[in-house]
Measured scan of single mutants.
Amino acid sequence: KLCLVCSDEASGCHYGVLTCGSCKVFFKRAVEGQHNYLCAGRNDCIIDKIRRKNCPACRYRKCLQAGMNLEARKTK
């Protein structure tokens, strides 16, 4: 099974979405830290295992598009 954000090996369902541990922690920190990420490109950066750290804005956008939600952990 692959992470729906970066296509690395998924470690489980986190915040409602099948993700790897790295994307799970990234999403939690992004939401709780209330980061205002900005993409230096055109908001279409490739997010994969190798390049997932290059653009936090696009990675966060991809987390949201996949359906990640901090509240999902509280309902399970």
Score class of each variant (00 low, 15 high):
1 K>D: 12
1 K>I: 05
1 K>C: 05
1 K>V: 04
1 K>S: 08
1 K>Q: 04
2 L>V: 11
2 L>P: 03
2 L>M: 11
2 L>I: 15
3 C>T: 01
3 C>A: 00
3 C>H: 01
4 L>G: 10
4 L>F: 11
4 L>K: 15
4 L>E: 14
5 V>A: 01
5 V>H: 01
6 C>W: 00
6 C>P: 00
7 S>E: 13
7 S>V: 03
7 S>P: 01
7 S>F: 09
8 D>K: 04
8 D>Q: 10
8 D>R: 04
8 D>A: 14
8 D>L: 02
8 D>P: 01
9 E>A: 14
9 E>V: 14
9 E>G: 13
10 A>R: 03
10 A>L: 08
10 A>K: 03
10 A>V: 03
11 S>G: 07
11 S>K: 12
12 G>W: 05
12 G>N: 07
12 G>I: 06
12 G>Y: 04
13 C>M: 10
13 C>V: 13
13 C>S: 10
13 C>W: 09
14 H>L: 06
14 H>Q: 07
14 H>M: 05
15 Y>Q: 07
15 Y>K: 05
16 G>M: 03
16 G>K: 04
16 G>W: 01
16 G>R: 03
16 G>C: 03
17 V>L: 05
17 V>H: 03
17 V>D: 03
18 L>H: 11
18 L>M: 07
18 L>I: 14
19 T>D: 00
19 T>E: 00
20 C>D: 00
21 G>H: 06
22 S>T: 03
22 S>C: 04
22 S>D: 15
24 K>S: 15
24 K>M: 07
24 K>E: 13
24 K>L: 05
24 K>R: 06
24 K>A: 11
25 V>F: 12
25 V>T: 11
25 V>G: 13
25 V>E: 15
25 V>Y: 06
25 V>Q: 13
25 V>N: 07
26 F>D: 00
26 F>Y: 03
26 F>C: 02
26 F>W: 03
26 F>E: 00
27 F>V: 03
28 K>D: 08
28 K>W: 06
28 K>T: 12
28 K>C: 06
28 K>V: 07
29 R>I: 13
29 R>Y: 08
30 A>K: 05
30 A>P: 00
30 A>I: 08
31 V>T: 11
31 V>N: 06
31 V>L: 10
31 V>F: 12
31 V>Y: 10
31 V>K: 07
32 E>N: 08
32 E>P: 03
33 G>Y: 14
33 G>K: 14
33 G>H: 12
33 G>Q: 11
33 G>D: 15
34 Q>I: 05
34 Q>L: 06
35 H>K: 12
35 H>L: 10
35 H>M: 13
35 H>S: 06
36 N>G: 08
36 N>H: 09
36 N>E: 12
36 N>V: 06
36 N>Q: 10
36 N>Y: 04
37 Y>F: 13
37 Y>S: 05
38 L>R: 12
38 L>H: 14
39 C>M: 00
39 C>W: 00
39 C>V: 00
40 A>G: 09
40 A>Y: 10
40 A>L: 08
40 A>T: 08
41 G>M: 12
41 G>F: 09
41 G>C: 12
41 G>Y: 06
42 R>P: 04
43 N>D: 12
43 N>P: 02
43 N>E: 13
43 N>Q: 14
44 D>T: 11
45 C>R: 01
45 C>G: 01
45 C>I: 00
46 I>S: 13
46 I>H: 09
46 I>F: 15
47 I>L: 05
47 I>W: 02
47 I>F: 03
47 I>C: 03
48 D>L: 03
48 D>W: 03
48 D>M: 02
49 K>G: 13
49 K>Q: 10
49 K>P: 13
49 K>A: 14
50 I>F: 04
51 R>D: 12
51 R>F: 15
52 R>I: 07
52 R>M: 06
52 R>T: 06
54 N>I: 13
54 N>P: 04
55 C>W: 02
55 C>P: 01
55 C>E: 01
55 C>H: 00
55 C>T: 01
56 P>M: 09
56 P>L: 09
57 A>C: 09
57 A>M: 02
57 A>L: 02
58 C>W: 00
58 C>G: 01
58 C>P: 01
59 R>M: 05
59 R>L: 11
60 Y>R: 03
61 R>Q: 15
61 R>K: 11
61 R>W: 07
62 K>C: 13
62 K>G: 06
63 C>N: 02
64 L>W: 10
64 L>C: 14
64 L>N: 07
65 Q>V: 10
65 Q>R: 09
66 A>E: 10
66 A>C: 10
66 A>R: 05
66 A>H: 09
67 G>V: 02
68 M>D: 01
68 M>N: 02
68 M>V: 03
69 N>T: 13
69 N>S: 14
69 N>V: 09
69 N>G: 09
70 L>W: 10
70 L>F: 07
70 L>M: 15
70 L>K: 10
70 L>T: 10
70 L>G: 08
70 L>N: 11
71 E>V: 12
71 E>W: 06
71 E>G: 12
71 E>F: 07
71 E>A: 05
72 A>F: 04
72 A>N: 10
73 R>M: 13
73 R>K: 13
73 R>I: 08
75 T>F: 15
75 T>G: 14
75 T>E: 14
75 T>A: 14
75 T>P: 12
76 K>G: 13
76 K>P: 13
76 K>M: 11
